[in-house]
Amino acid sequence: MPVKVGIPRALLYYYYYPLWRTFFEELGAEVVLSSPSTKGVLTEGLKYAVDEVCLPVKLTFGHVLDLAGKVDLIFLPRLISVKKAEYICPKFLGLPDMIRRLAGIPPLIDVNIDRYKSNNDICLAVKEVGRLFTHNHFKIWLAYRRSLKVHRRYFRLLELGLMPAEALAVLKDRVKNEPLPEPEKITVALIGHPYNIHDPYVSMNIIGRLRTLGANVITAECLPEKTAGSYASRLPKKLFWTLGQRMMGAALYYLERPDLSGMIHVAAFGCGPDSMTGELIERRARTMGMPFLSLTLDEHTGEAGVITRLEAFLDMVSWKMAGTVGAIKSSS
């Protein structure tokens, strides 16, 4: 029987799931994904996480517990750094230690992913994990190459404007004709950590709602990393959070796009990086006169309130667009 490796549907699952899954499957393991986020999953997490940690980490606790009893191992790497000279967040650094203490969970694959000093250091992690399954170095290497290929394909799909859920579906069904979303009149940039905006439970399906309300949604993931990086480098000092940098760069880039009608910033309550990048983004958006909405999510956020604010925001955006159109007409 193949070894069952559990992957929590949380945090950087939204970036690396195709890569991780391919890697483990190539090594002959069976990959089990935790259930989609629900109130129940979160409630389990809340029982064990301290009040102060942010919602996505609380939810991760829940996802790990969801896998307990279903798998032999849980893949919960310590994501120290996924890019040279950058970090993700102190909570990612301490995640395996916060989780390991939970009773009744299977052993963790808590390998250090640390590219802080050099991007090549990833090989260490690949070897370390691979060795749990095989001693054949060639096989490990091959598995890694294949998983990278899938990863690249996934990111290309994201850059085409697909949301992670859609891109994952495309990868799964091997659909050749990747459908592009129909363009709408209003385009809204949704800026937030991927695990906050792409988890429909956490975000209260904000993407779906915006689309239903008639808006195109673009996120930081729709932009090639390079572009985001070069825009983010306009800041006086390089941001040392990979995700923060990407959100910042995307926000700066989108703010200059003439077809952008509004920007929504989604932060987790008490999130450290968001409190800093959010501040910079908001200041920039306000100076540029871009309609801006800031949403803060925690386990007490009420859905009704969020919907009302979204609707009001979109009304404001379309009102402003109508105003601009009027102004152009009257001046011509």
């Binding site: 000279a85 950058e86 970090y87 993700i88 967040c89 102190p90 650094l93 800041l235 006086p236 000092k237 941001l239 040392f240 959070w241 450290g272 990086p273 409190s275 800093m276 501040e279 910079l280 200041r283």
Partner: peptide, 22 residues
């Protein structure tokens, strides 16, 4: 003092500067 992460301290100065400028 500055810093290079992962904590916020390393970006204090830049945020404070932006706020003070405004």
């Amino acid at each position: 003092a500055g810093g290079c992460g992962p904590c916020r301290f390393g970006y204090y100065a830049q945020i404070q500067q932006a706020i003070l400028k405004d």
